[in-house]
Amino acid sequence: MTTYVLIAGACHGGWYYESITAQLRAQGHQVHAPTLSADGNLKEHVEQVLALLDGLDDVVLAGHSYGGMVITGAADRVPEKIKSLVYVDALVPRDGQSAWDLVHGFWRDWYIDGVAADGRGVAPMPFFDQRAFAHPIASLLQRPRLTGAVDRITNRWYLYCERTEESPFTRFRDAFRDDPTWQVRSLDVGHDFLDGGAEEFLDVLAKAGA
């Protein structure tokens, strides 16, 4: 049995992984897919995941998009609890790099235009799931303080979604594909990777937990 913790991207909650969690649990695995606070900053989101990790060990920790910021921060704090890291079209920060620092173009426009209504929460895109909610801008601007302990985890996977428009994630695919501590896959899907990529994601999760 493997323990999985799955972190969704901006504006999404644990419900994003419903089809995945159902299949993993049916196989006998322990799965957690928390919904992060809609008014927290990055530090608070990391602390929410750390609280969940308390009492867990040998965890496969996965994050999509903004979720990469969160899993990196959590793994840097408790690398001894993490069996493997799985990033799916996700941001992978170094010390002092915010989500804002790592994106460009369309993504920055979305952050700024999306927060115009109240200055606090970035509104979901019109095509997002109806359950999507505004994402706190503070979490996208806050720069993490990382010690580098996350690099002690050498079972790391990066799933790159080839159809993501104006992708800020290409830099990570290119940086990691020749690094022996990373295994990189390209998926022929868009940023909403579960639309067409669920089976490949499950395959990677199984390998990461083996």
Score class of each variant (00 low, 15 high):
Ala138Pro: 01
Thr147Gln: 09
Gly119Phe: 01
Pro136Tyr: 00
Pro136Ile: 00
Arg108His: 07
Gly55Lys: 13
Val5Asp: 12
Thr21Tyr: 00
Asn41Tyr: 00
Gln130Asp: 08
Arg171Ser: 14
Leu42Thr: 12
Leu141Pro: 04
Ala33Lys: 04
Ala8Tyr: 01
Gln97Phe: 07
Phe176Ala: 13
Pro93Ala: 15
Ala74Trp: 10
Tyr111Asn: 01
Arg108Lys: 15
Ala175Tyr: 11
Ala74Tyr: 14
Gly14Ser: 10
Gly13Asp: 07
Ala149Ile: 02
Phe176Ser: 08
Glu166Arg: 10
Trp15Phe: 11
Ser84Pro: 06
Gln183Cys: 09
Trp157Phe: 15
Ala51Gly: 15
Arg156Met: 03
Trp110Pro: 01
Leu24Ser: 05
Gly63Lys: 10
Lys81Ala: 07
Leu50Asn: 07
Gly40Pro: 02
Arg143Trp: 09
Gly119Leu: 04
Gly96Ala: 08
Asn155Ala: 13
Leu52Lys: 10
Glu44Arg: 07
Ser19Gly: 06
Lys83Met: 05
Met1Phe: 10
Val86Leu: 02
Arg163Tyr: 08
Gly63Glu: 03
Thr154Met: 07
Leu53Ser: 10
Cys161Ser: 15
Ala38Lys: 02
Phe176Lys: 11
Gly67Arg: 07
Val122Lys: 06
Val103Gln: 10
Ala90Ile: 04
Gly28Lys: 09
Ala116Tyr: 04
Val103His: 12
Tyr111Glu: 01
Ser19Cys: 05
Ala26Ser: 13
Asp195Glu: 14
His12Pro: 03
Val78Asp: 04
Phe127Lys: 08
Gln27Ala: 15
Asp188Ser: 07
Leu202Asn: 05
Met125Tyr: 10
Leu140Lys: 11
Leu91Phe: 11
Asp58Glu: 15
Ile7Pro: 04
Thr147Asn: 05
Thr72Arg: 13
Gly9Gln: 12
Gly197Met: 00
Tyr17Val: 00
Asp195Trp: 02
Glu199Met: 04
Ala90Thr: 08
Val204Cys: 02
Gly196Tyr: 09
Val204Leu: 05
Leu202Ile: 00
Val70Trp: 13
Ser19Arg: 15
Ala8Gly: 12
Asp89Cys: 09
Phe106Cys: 03
Leu141Gln: 14
Leu205Ala: 02
